[in-house]
Design a protein around this nucleic acid. Sequence first.
DNA 1: TCAAAAGTGTTTCCCTTACACCCATGA
DNA 2: TCATGGGTGTAAGGGAAACACTTTTGA
Lengths: 250, 250
Amino acid sequence: MTKINSPRETDEKGEGFLKSIAIDAVIFGFHNNQLKVLLIEYKRTGLFALPGGFIKDDEDVNSAATRVVNDRTGLDDIFLEQFYVFGDYSRYNPAQFKIIISAGGAAPPDDHWLLKRFISIGYYALVDFTRAKPTPAAIFDSCDWYDLGSMPTLIQDHSLIVDKALNTLRANLDHKVIGFNLLPGEFTMGDLQKLYETILGKKLLRPAFQRKMLALGILERVAKKWTGGAHKAPYLYKFINETIGFSSKQ
Amino acid sequence: MTKINSPRETDEKGEGFLKSIAIDAVIFGFHNNQLKVLLIEYKRTGLFALPGGFIKDDEDVNSAATRVVNDRTGLDDIFLEQFYVFGDYSRYNPAQFKIIISAGGAAPPDDHWLLKRFISIGYYALVDFTRAKPTPAAIFDSCDWYDLGSMPTLIQDHSLIVDKALNTLRANLDHKVIGFNLLPGEFTMGDLQKLYETILGKKLLRPAFQRKMLALGILERVAKKWTGGAHKAPYLYKFINETIGFSSKQ
DNA sequence: TCAAAAGTGTTTCCCTTACACCCATGA
DNA sequence: TCATGGGTGTAAGGGAAACACTTTTGA
């Protein structure tokens, strides 16, 4: 579908990209009982933002989102879903972009395409923290995980986008099968419960949780786990589902 | 928020509008136990489509959607919600738009802004059929209600958009309070049940339905209804909720 | 042998389902 | 008085909540 011709975002005209449309990705990971979000920092600005990108003239929007997440994490098989379009006029803030572009070289002309108003399509992605390799682009100082509770201030309305992504994740956790995307291939029931508790922000009852998860019929018990703890070793489970990757589950 | 300056879609350059972004609205109504969708027909083309529009340079995207629905129905207080962005490259079909524009006057130049690739933000609206006044624009032959089961062929991927809107409506009917927006201010429990049955495409048990709806605590019994039928007259109910209008319910 | 975590069994409770019964009304 | 649709009562069934008990392991 997508011809590869590699236009460059830094062109003043934005040749090769759809104008006025951006993609912002809230990439969630889970580690040490903490829900994390991948953020980038623009060089020499102290400005933090969600990983984002633009849509090539001949590229599907969903493919562009996949490409953005792949560029930042190196992962291919990711759960990714649109959740909202952020399109208020009030989010238009060219001053911030002028700083970002200027930090990368010369000050941009006033009619630089990135200084125009943009609408952003919000995606959220659930990735395996242990396999993701945060990868900055040339214009970033960093690309790293941040705990949801201790994120730096973000540009534009990106904090709002994270909030809305988290709300969507919470709402979907109940009636879609998505939590597993945040865990490694094999995990214990305790890991899974910690994940659910962290996302939902509340404690769950262990017996009820175990039964509910097993009743879904999508978990396969693999083997015994050895632990360093002074207690019974838990089973390992893996998620059995062929339809991994870009999800069209409704 | 929105300065009024009235740009015109027919300008070749699309001056005053965001480029590459359109809005398509699936406006649902309910009448005679049928779920209906509002469709427009372009003049002298035989082409049917969803009501749609574009976003003014200084207009919120959600405001633009409200404006589109208001233009076609005359209604102000409408339930309206984004549900998906349709952004595949394959939906790009300039030939159809060339026909539409040509039918309105002279053939457009090849660089007419409407012949470029567009991404469409899908909204669905739930309106009171009895209060909506379908209103065509100058370039339409008609603007009318169609039964979901007997719609004409639609341009582009508009049939897909309707399908996805219906699926979203079905999924939300269970866990959001939205069905009432399709009924007049006062209605019987039978009306409401018929509506649910039509949307979900299956029969529901009357006693269970009545109890579930009343348990929501959002219905107020108003008065006795007189009927022409040879049976007990049903109560009338009305929906008690202050937060009518553009919904931010999550 | 003990503490801690994991796995499973059991009872209770509540909501939904299914069905029954009564009510009101016009033909 | 009878058929039809509306409203409510009630018993049965299924799943979640709450709690108890057993199992396994390293200290």
